[in-house]
Design a protein around this nucleic acid. Sequence first.
DNA 1: TATGCGATATTCT
DNA 2: GAATATCGCATAG
Length: 207
Amino acid sequence: MREAPAQSLPRIRRLRRSELPSDTIELARYLIGKTLVHKLSRVRLSGRIVETEAYTVGDAAGHAFRGETPSIRSLFLPRGYAYVYFTYGSSFMMNVSSEEAGVGAGVLVRALEPLEGIGFMERRRGTHRLLDLARGPGRLAQAMDIDRRYDGVDLCSAETLWLGSAVRRAGRIGASIRIGITRDVHRIHRFYECGSPFVSGPKRLCE
DNA sequence: TATGCGATATTCT
DNA sequence: GAATATCGCATAG
């Protein structure tokens, strides 16, 4: 498998914090179509964000619901910081903090369309199936080599892991209930690019 | 395609 | 001890 030449992509510009909407749900929608970039010493990994979920203030499904503890402190940073945690004994997941300092809320990045470093992602994931590289939050973190080292980093200024501009306009954005939660299940806080095969979850949630 | 289950580790009760 | 913002494999249809 050969990698797509990076020069075929439009230049990816780092997003400034002032460009990020200061509301959790607006940020979740805004991030669809934007890029997540991880610069390693020899490769650059990047992918187009196609699926997110919002975990707002007062949301019983959100980790910040019961107040600040050391393990979730990154959710209480200003918008644009990474909150990375480990769960189910096997998966890391990455959120983007989404409110002002001291307020706990975030956006879970659930799926990417791989753009750069696809060979590296294939090796990390142990598969050559493009659709399975970053479809789902745990797979995404594994493909992008994201773990707790990145908990608390500023995605608007970090040298290694950052949010970038869109390489092409997002299609129509759909909304649905969220996946894998047991509390506040009714909230329509999941967003995705309609028709993208890189979106996770059952088909009935992708219309 | 859809559903079910076990694995696994960190955190909170 | 219980719960968990999941995954991958198994099985049935």
